[in-house]
Simulated scan of single mutants.
Amino acid sequence: MKLALILLAAGDSRRFNGNKLLHEFNGKPMYQYILEEVEKLPDDIFDRKVVVTQYQEIMSCMSDYGYEVVVNEESSLGISHSIHLALEVLENEETDYCFAVCDQPYLKAATIRDLVRGWRNSGKGIGCLCNMGALGNPAIFSKNYLKELLKLEGDVGGKRVIRRHIEDLYLHEVVDGLELVDIDVRKDSES
């Protein structure tokens, strides 16, 4: 079965007090960290790469790297809207889905690769990263979960589906919990 990478990069960054995805974090825009790590992965790990965003800079950069750009003009509808937009683009494709966010600057390519391999070998329908019991992104869903993902509403993401199907979940433990940290609040030293 094919696997599509879906990068979610349309958020309004309400808690961040500014656009966190374009914010310079240790010398480069935050969204570029995941882009650079995905570039280190084997070419055959993802069959398609999609980014959902409302930001022109991200659209331009990602299309240069071969991503299909899906424009989210209604980000106020929450993360579920970005999920729906991506799934609509992929709906006629026989593929599974790997969702990742663009505000985890410490996530490493090897961790993404090991998650995908471990999930494929597990025979489970869902896979995600975790650290000491805390669930994190990326998260992978087999096509069997398409209808449930399309029923998500508001600012609710795939964790709701994961929690309903713990018996079908492959957890990939991350040794360094920093990899799962998403940057939601601007530190004074970064502004």
Score class of each variant (00 low, 15 high):
Ile166Phe: 06
Met59Trp: 03
Asn26Arg: 11
Glu57Pro: 03
Asp155Phe: 03
Asn137Lys: 09
Val51Trp: 07
Ala86Gln: 13
Met59Cys: 13
Val174Lys: 08
Gly154Asp: 13
Ser76Arg: 13
Asn137Pro: 00
Tyr97Ser: 07
Leu149Ser: 04
Glu93Tyr: 09
Pro42Trp: 08
Asp182Ile: 03
Ala110Leu: 10
Gly157Trp: 04
Ala4His: 03
Ala100Met: 15
Pro105Tyr: 08
Val175Asn: 14
Asp103Ile: 04
Ala134Asp: 15
Ser142Asn: 11
Gln56Phe: 13
Leu3Ala: 06
Lys159Asp: 00
Phe25Thr: 12
Ala139Glu: 06
Glu74Lys: 15
Cys61Arg: 07
Lys28Phe: 03
Glu148Gln: 13
Asp168Phe: 12
Gly11Trp: 11
Tyr31Pro: 05
Lys40Pro: 02
Glu73Trp: 05
Gly158Ile: 02
Asn92Ser: 14
Leu115Glu: 14
Ala139Trp: 02
Gly78Asn: 05
Val175Gln: 14
Asp182Lys: 13
Asn17Ala: 09
Leu3Met: 07
Leu115Trp: 08
Ile183Trp: 06
Lys40Gly: 00
Asp182Phe: 13
Gly123Ile: 12
Gly177Lys: 08
Lys2His: 10
His81Arg: 12
Ile83His: 12
Lys143Glu: 07
Asn72Ser: 13
Ala139His: 04
Arg117Gln: 05
Asn19Ser: 14
Arg160Ala: 15
Ser63Pro: 04
Gly27Asp: 01
Ile45Tyr: 05
Asn92Val: 01
Val50Thr: 09
Glu37Arg: 02
Tyr106Val: 02
Asp96Gly: 05
Ser189Cys: 13
Tyr97Glu: 06
Ala10Val: 01
Asn26Ile: 04
Cys128Gln: 01
Arg186Cys: 12
Glu74Asn: 15
Tyr67Lys: 11
Gly127Trp: 04
Gly136Asp: 01
Asn144His: 10
Ile112Asn: 12
Ile79Ala: 09
Cys128Thr: 05
Asp168Leu: 11
Leu115Phe: 01
Glu39His: 12
Gly133Trp: 04
Ala4Phe: 04
Ile45Cys: 05
Phe25Pro: 04
Asp155Thr: 03
Leu90Ile: 01
Ala9Tyr: 02
Asp168Ala: 10
Ser80Lys: 01
Asp47Gly: 15
Asp64Pro: 00
Asp96Trp: 00
Val89Phe: 13
Ile45Arg: 13
Leu135Phe: 08
Ala86Asp: 05
Leu150Phe: 06
